[in-house]
């Protein structure tokens, strides 16, 4: 049953003398400082600097090195595994993957998980559920309409559990809860499409998060990592009467061609996410273009993923352009 498994030489030598170990750790720290294209990679507990002139940013904390506080100054220490960023005197450690932390104005895609007390609760991939107040949606009848008790009772007719919507972050509460609004024709309930989720850090913050791709797919890239894909539809009649809530619930058939395009885009985005590449309209289009030589289902194979992401990477690289 027992296999003889000698431990690695580094760990056994480290065990034999503690001084060996500490010198190795210092050498390791020096190496880390220049690793990865000069980027400073840290792990929790790593000392970023002992200089006291820096300010403590997100992902860092001060740690007292020795017991007597007069002798050694507090060290600025990392709290995340990630990379160090410096803005003048401010040091920040940014983790490469984490939950979505919103900012006002962000476009997000969310799924309704519950409702009550004049608000909907939405899963938006954040630390806490987002809330959408009844007063921050456009109800039929225009902006100036008063919200009555009947409206509160009719909330489930408007949005119910399981519905997917796009929205914008309106404000941040002190405990980190995000308050959303859909008071624009851009936002609201999403129909007849495909929902997908990627790590939120991969979505690049852009001017526009609603994209009509050339292949006839409309893509909503929520900054929270949730993405909605659907067939592009003419929106002419929507703009005619902007005061009315557009509740386009009539059943519309998505053509087989559009479906296969949606599936292709979806596989492309998953491919980009699996290689930890930034996701925005250009990279998706580049990946899509490269994917045309493959079947939609072939895009799940690692060879195809490597090929299309390499193509997107080469084109998206600003040095290459």
């Amino acid at each position: 049953m027992m296999d003889v498994e000698p431990s690695s030489s580094s760990s056994s030598s480290a065990m034999q003398s503690s001084s060996d170990y500490s010198s190795a750790a210092i050498a390791g720290a020096a190496e880390l400082f220049i690793a990865a294209n000069g980027r400073h990679i840290v792990c929790p507990g790593d000392t970023i600097t002992t200089e006291t002139s820096f300010m403590r940013g997100h992902g860092t904390y001060f740690q007292q090195q020795s017991k007597d506080e007069n002798e050694q100054p507090a060290q600025l220490t990392a709290a995340y595994a990630g990379i160090v960023e410096r803005v003048n005197k401010l040091l920040v450690v940014r983790p490469l993957r984490t939950r979505y932390s919103g900012e006002v104005g962000d476009v997000v895609v969310g799924r309704v998980t519950g409702l009550g007390g004049k608000r909907w609760k939405l899963d938006i991939n954040a630390r806490l559920d987002g809330i959408l107040l009844l007063s921050s949606v456009n109800l039929p009848g225009g902006v100036l309409r008063r919200r009555s008790a009947e409206d509160e009772l009719m909330m489930r007719d408007h949005l119910t559990e399981g519905d997917v919507i796009s929205a914008e972050v309106q404000s941040l509460f002190s405990d980190g809860t995000l308050s959303l609004h859909t008071r624009s024709l851009k936002y609201g309930k999403l129909h007849y499409g495909s929902f997908m989720s990627v790590p939120s850090a991969l979505i690049k913050r852009c001017k526009n998060h609603f994209h009509d791709l050339p292949c006839g797919v409309t893509m909503i890239l929520g900054l929270n990592g949730y993405i909605w894909l659907s067939e592009t539809r003419a929106t002419a009649q929507m703009q005619l009467n902007p005061n009315d809530e557009i509740e386009e619930t009539s059943f519309q058939i998505t053509s087989i061609n559009a479906r296969s395009n949606i599936a292709r885009i979806r596989n492309c985005i998953n491919a980009l996410a699996s290689r930890h590449m930034p996701i925005y309209d250009s990279t998706v289009v580049y990946a899509y273009d490269a994917s045309l030589e493959f079947d939609v289902k072939a895009l799940l194979q690692p060879e195809a993923i490597d090929k299309i992401t390499a193509h997107a990477r080469a084109l998206a690289d600003p040095g290459a352009m």
């Binding site: 294209n37 595994a81 991969l202 590449m277």
Partner: peptide
């Protein structure tokens, strides 16, 4: 961390 950065070493140093 290095592997993630290498995967992301495309054009997006600023946003990743």
């Amino acid at each position: 961390t290095k592997a993630l950065l290498a995967g992301a070493a495309s054009g997006a140093d600023a946003d990743l």
